[in-house]
Design a protein around this nucleic acid. Structure first.
Lengths: 144, 144
DNA sequence: ATGATTTAGTTGATATATCAATTATTGTCC
DNA sequence: GGACAATAATTGATATATCAACTAAATCAT
């Protein structure tokens, strides 16, 4: 068996974990009280305000159960509110509060900086190839 | 703010999560009772039998606390044993049992297949560039 | 040699991941 | 239109991630 260092999935794992730690630390240092995972949910809601919890789960690659719990925390923090859904009483309408909107704006700057630092010296071409190769891997692994 | 789909870290996250789900499912279907994270710890121990728990944590990008708990489970499953360390009574000598060794051999085949499937149609050159770009990102994010 | 510091590992608290089971509601089909 | 299946979300159980506090042992410094 090949050593861990030689395995590409080990490197991919290392890259995303290193970036997440880096990004989380910088959010924390900027006084922004949110985790990366909570931000992902907020971002999905910002992009599509009428999204359902199940759709959020799919979008951020999480389980519906995880999304339920993350939303519970975001509500506790007053960044979100659960309201009645117009046409489907099984669903909720999730509303980003004004506090939540302000927070998201503040985060945007830090997130942009994080990416710029993390991608320093990576060309557009390299970025494109990175994306293409990862997309091939993703499709190869689709179970269905 | 750019949409999630356009963010490279979102794609990296998606790739590693898709692969992990794929790999875990195939391990489970092969009747192998181990998680990917537990396998990582076993593999680190197989590569360096005298490794310490802290060194394992560093190698597999986990917290020492996580490693303690993963090892507890591996011991409960009889794949590992904690023994006295020769020269340092703070440490343990972790020993892979014969059951554990057999398991690791069985896993090796499945893991090799998983990688072959996941990397189908990815050339050596693409793999090298993927690794290089990820390494740049990892170094850019090193906090220290 | 002893007092301070460092290191190895554990434990508790909280956040997240995953699966299975459950509830409430909606949709389908005859 | 009423039984049945599908869907949206929650909850419980277990595994993992992370941080902080802690214990025990080793090392360092004078």
């Amino acid at each position: 068996m090949e050593k861990l260092e030689g395995i590409i999935f080990y490197t991919i794992d290392k890259a995303i974990k290193t970036y997440r730690q880096f990004a989380q630390k910088r959010l924390y240092e900027a006084g922004l009280e949110i985790t990366i995972d909570q931000w992902l949910v907020m971002q999905a809601l910002t992009e599509k305000p009428d999204i359902s919890q199940n759709e959020i789960a799919e979008k951020v690659f999480k389980d519906a159960a995880s999304v339920t719990r993350i939303i519970d925390l975001l509500i506790k923090k007053k960044y979100l509110e659960r309201k009645m859904h117009d046409s489907d009483r099984r669903r909720f309408h999730l509303e980003v509060t004004s506090v939540g909107k302000t927070l998201m704006k503040d985060i945007a700057k830090v997130v942009a900086q994080n990416r710029a630092i993390a991608l320093h010296d990576v060309t557009q071409e390299e970025l494109g190839m990175l994306r293409d190769t990862l997309t091939v891997i993703i499709n190869n692994c689709k179970t269905n």
